[in-house]
Amino acid sequence: MSGDIVEDTRGIDRTASIVLALGLLFILGPLVFTLITASQSYDSFVRSGISPVPGTHLIENIRRLFTTTAIPAQVVNSFIVALMVAAFKCALAFVTAFGLVFFRVHYAGIVFAVLMGTVLLPLDLRVVTTYQVVSNVAMPVNGLLNATGINAMIAAFFGAPVDLQLNLLDSYPGIVLPALATGTGVFMMRQFFRTLPGDLVKAAQMDGAGWFRFMIDIALPLARTNLTALFILMFLGGWTMYLWPLLASSTPAMQTAVVGLARLSPQGDGQVPDYPLIMAGAVVVSILPLLMIAFLQRFIVRGLTLTEK
């Protein structure tokens, strides 16, 4: 090795370090400002604006947040929604992918294609009509009865057609169900199942185990790490959703924390907006997912690289 290359490496490493430091600054800067502002009293904030040094009112601001806003209840909503999204997505992905990989049926390809179609159009692009469907999920049944002429018969017979109504707006199922209609989880699990050696199935069959025992005793334990990664990613996804929960929930009591935070407008006290309170809200709303990320790092990285198609 010549001295030149050593010198060269040191120079590159210095550049790399500076780049990373800037990157860290870019990511951490807004978070630091959030925390500092959340720790200031409203009065000192009104006097001097954004400040480089933290204040002493963090607890006080969070207390105000808990007593004067709906954020605490909305954090619970977010938790329930994120948990439901993650749990159902994992469960659905697991059984669906299992069925598609470990059985040999001619229609598996069609089912898979139907499910993968969902990846192309995110929920945000179909909110207008999804809203209509969720406001009456029985609508397709009515439509089917009308289209097939059954309803005309019923109307002739009983004097009135069937008109079923089931409104899911402003409820947990209404927020969660449309978020489940995506095939990414199925795709991830299918890719994973296909990496399992075929001998596993053969061995299970020799032991006389049916598909159900194989699914519970063998496939599930093997998929644990991947399911955990999927679960965490979907939980974060559920927690950070915005447009759909914004529309599906209309009362503050049903809104998720992220929606509540965005609506945390100052209530006409006739002063500068209460940014310390709003930033305290941002801290409370983001703290759980941030902790998950900081401590469950390897699952997240695994999950993200798994979404790579």
């Binding site: 915005y242 929606v259 935070l261 983001s286 990320i293």
Partner: peptide, 14 residues
């Protein structure tokens, strides 16, 4: 990787 846990709406507010 931290921004992954922060909702677009939250970072918008900030």
């Amino acid at each position: 990787i931290w921004p992954k846990g922060i909702a677009g709406a939250s970072i918008g507010v900030v």
